[in-house]
Design a protein around this nucleic acid. Structure first.
Lengths: 188, 188
DNA sequence: CGTGGAGTTGAATACGATCAACACCGGTGG
DNA sequence: CCACCGGTGTTGATCGTATTCAACTCCACG
């Protein structure tokens, strides 16, 4: 998949200054399945734009259980906004579920947003609102849907991810145990 | 509480153009407890900035049960981003839990963001990231905490709201029934 | 007053978690 | 080439947490 910088340049949407600022803080990397990009407690933040492959973000709770927060396939951004908002350290882990090609977006892209153009910023606002909408739906689903309903909704919404991850990770994303998901599936 | 426009003007942070654009699409209103500002299915969107009072946003599911998505006390924004992202209609209801004084922010403030200054936009980016962080925490809590843990966390995080809303609404926010919350409380 | 919403309590139920056993690969090394 | 191994997924029994349904108390507000 084309990088964001390449795309920006081709489309001639932004000024040279904006593009320079972007490219200074964006670095492309190829990583292997299993690579951990960020772990609980990290204080330097990055966001990871997925050009190819699949990342996930997750927490490990006090009982040692993993809970997947998001999957990030091609075209998505994997990031823990926790560090951006406070001077706190990261709560999320981020790792690669497949061999992946990513862009590492440096912290300054988020903290020095004043240097970006109006056009780019207003596009970012649009993306952030979309993400909020996604999270909003997830919360409402966790509150009002049964495990079965959540599973079926997941199948509809993310068919491309279903094929690529083990079932136990889907269970982890849905907020249930692998055993429960297995039983739910057998009853349909 | 001071309105956002008043604040912006006083602080001389923004250009006259920006302020004009803002004031054209912001209207202050005084509303009574119980007033419904938005309901499921509405297609015109507004965001509501709370100067004084308390709003809530919630859904009503297929079984007719209410699930509170957010409380919005003074200084907060109550809005359903659903309509902003697609051409879909609103999923959330928004109403007033107390007599309130609010600013109604028109749709154009979100769709014509290109007209806003870089400074204002980058501030908005910061606020959106904070909101994402709040939602992220809520999701992780719903997935990994017991009802009791979620309740105690709520008490710590929103002590000012606890006093102002009936218990059944806190239960609704936590994703449990009023009866369950009552039982949880009696066992501590 | 008296009426209805809020909160509590109890009994029965349902849903998902936990624990344990086992089948099914896919890969590795003997 | 096959035997072994670890990880994944399934199934069953049991347990625990929260739901449901119902009855009752307590107030706030008409």
């Amino acid at each position: 998949m084309e990088s964001s910088i390449e795309k920006f340049t081709r489309e001639k949407k932004y000024s040279k200054e904006t593009l320079d600022f972007l490219s200074k803080h964006i670095e492309t990397k190829t990583i292997k399945k299993g690579t951990v990009l960020q772990k609980n407690g990290d204080t330097t933040i990055n966001a990871f734009y997925v050009k190819k492959g699949l990342l996930r973000t997750y927490i490990i709770d006090e009982k040692g259980r993993e809970h997947i927060f998001t999957f990030a396939p091609e075209g998505w951004l994997a990031t823990d906004v926790e560090v951006l908002t406070k001077q706190a350290s990261a709560t999320l882990f981020i790792d690669a579920l497949e061999d992946s090609e990513i862009e590492v977006l440096g912290e300054k892209l988020f903290t020095e947003t004043g240097k970006l153009s109006t056009k780019l910023l207003s596009e970012e606002v649009g993306k952030l609102i979309k993400r909020i909408n996604t999270l909003q739906k997830r919360i409402l689903m966790l509150m009002s849907y049964s495990a079965l309903d959540r599973y079926e909704e997941f199948l509809k919404t993310y068919p491309q991810i279903v094929q690529r991850v083990p079932q136990k990770m889907i269970a982890s994303y849905l907020g249930i145990t692998p055993e429960s998901l297995s039983k739910i599936r057998s009853k349909k």
